[in-house]
Design a protein around this nucleic acid. Structure first.
Length: 397
DNA sequence: TCTGGGGTCCTAGGACCC
DNA sequence: TCTGGGGTCCTAGGACCC
């Protein structure tokens, strides 16, 4: 039997803001985009939550419910920096820590809990370390269970600053009092599909036959759901983060637009951003995909394979734009680009001067962005003059 | 003046090959 | 005139997570 911790930082982005700025403490704050930018609340303080603000609510609706809520811009670098620090704390207590997201982690403490005086004592130590070293305004909820699925359920059961220890013996009670969607991996669509087959509760799922579930959902998802119905989750805690598989950026326009020139500029900036992040991790992309969300909220996309893996924004932009252009026949709400099928950039020096020169130019652009910010240097292609020539040279597959 | 942005994984269906 | 089946790759889209 394994002993798994799931540690969830409470209202993480909002707590970080309140930890950093004492004036924000005990106030209704929400982390989100500027009002007027069709943004949502990524995190809300406890005070704001009490007033009806929920995570992922549109900023507009949140302000309607809580007019004096202060909207604070997110600070991704700070979140990452603090996440590294609590990762460091967790790693003192076990060698098996999986960072599940920026504010959550799974710990496999099977071999370690006794060494730290047992499960409860270990949980208290972790909480104490966070309070002492990161700040008393950043708290966490800890769920403990024999697998990740139940540990995650446990951390959700008591917020903020919770501690819930679940064992197999608790399953009948859990199944009787939880909703299907309380479990990791079941959201609204799956709930509806299950309901269409007369599976409405966790007990229904518990008694559902595996062949039925696989016939509805396919072998992989069907098996996962069946295991979920048994309270089982064999997935291990994976301590080494897997390499990135894609880099993407998307942007919701302040207003729906069909203005090709304006869309091109916006899109170029997106490709540049994704490319820059990819280059920073020394990858080249072999596939490129684009997405559009229209005013009616439907998504459409296209993808293509590059003749040769690339990492420079111009090549990638020209490829992406060729794919995107046919999709821009009606007003767009969102544009997105994803770079995928990544390969590691080789270190071999090019024998061609032109290639070396190109790489130097790109390195210089990266350095300028790094030092002076993202908007300091742009390709002439954004003016549209050189663009046509390049675009005609690319054939999507 | 409804509904973000970063990801991962899965599935369905078609093309193509043997 | 009819016509299997398996495998792989590719694309598009869906579902889910925080």
């Amino acid at each position: 039997m394994r002993t798994i911790f799931h540690i969830d930082m409470n209202a993480y982005f909002a707590s970080v803001a309140q930890q950093a700025n004492p004036f924000l403490r005990n106030k209704a704050i929400g982390i989100g985009g500027k009002p007027g930018t069709r943004s949502i609340i990524a995190a809300a303080s406890q005070t704001a939550k009490k007033r009806g603000v929920k995570t992922a609510m549109s900023t507009r609706e949140a302000l309607a419910r809580c007019p004096d809520m202060e909207i604070i811009a997110g600070d991704p670098h700070l979140y990452e920096h603090i996440a590294e620090r609590f990762l460091g704390i967790f790693q003192r207590y076990t060698d098996c820590v999986e960072l599940f997201s920026i504010d959550e982690a799974f710990l496999d403490v099977t071999a370690w809990a006794d060494r730290w005086g047992g499960v409860r004592s270990l949980a208290l130590r972790v909480k104490a370390d966070i309070a002492k070293e990161i700040g008393a305004h950043i708290t966490c909820s800890i769920g403990v269970a024999p697998n990740k699925l139940l540990a995650k359920l446990g951390s959700d059961m008591q917020k903020p600053d919770g501690f819930v220890w679940l064992t197999k013996k608790d399953l009948p009670v859990l199944f009787a009092f939880s909703e299907l969607t309380d479990f990791l991996g079941i959201a609204e669509r799956t709930r509806r599909r299950l309901a269409a087959h007369h599976i409405h509760t966790l007990l229904d799922l518990h008694y559902a036959q595996l062949p039925i579930l696989t016939s509805i959902f396919g072998s992989s998802t069907g098996l996962r759901l069946w295991l979920l119905g048994q309270g089982e989750d064999p997935s291990p805690v994976i301590a080494t983060p897997p390499p990135s598989k894609s880099f993407g950026n998307s942007y919701t326009l302040p207003k729906d637009s069909a203005d090709i020139d304006a869309l091109r500029k916006t899109f170029f900036a997106l490709v540049e951003k994704a490319t820059h992040r990819m280059r920073a991790e020394l990858f080249l992309a072999s596939t490129i995909s684009v997405t559009v969300r229209y005013a009616d909220f439907t998504f459409h996309g296209a993808q293509g394979r590059l003749g040769e893996a690339a990492d420079d924004p111009l090549t990638l932009f020209h490829a992406a734009w060729t794919l995107l252009l046919p999709l821009l026949h009606r007003p767009c709400r969102l544009l997105g680009v994803h770079l995928g099928d990544l390969r590691v950039r080789g270190s071999q020096a090019s024998i061609w001067n032109e290639e070396t020169q190109r790489k130097r130019v790109l390195a210089a652009i990266d350095a300028i962005h790094e030092r002076y910010g993202k908007n300091t240097i742009h390709a002439a292609a954004t003016t549209g003059v050189e663009l046509k020539r390049h675009v005609s040279g690319f054939a999507p597959r």
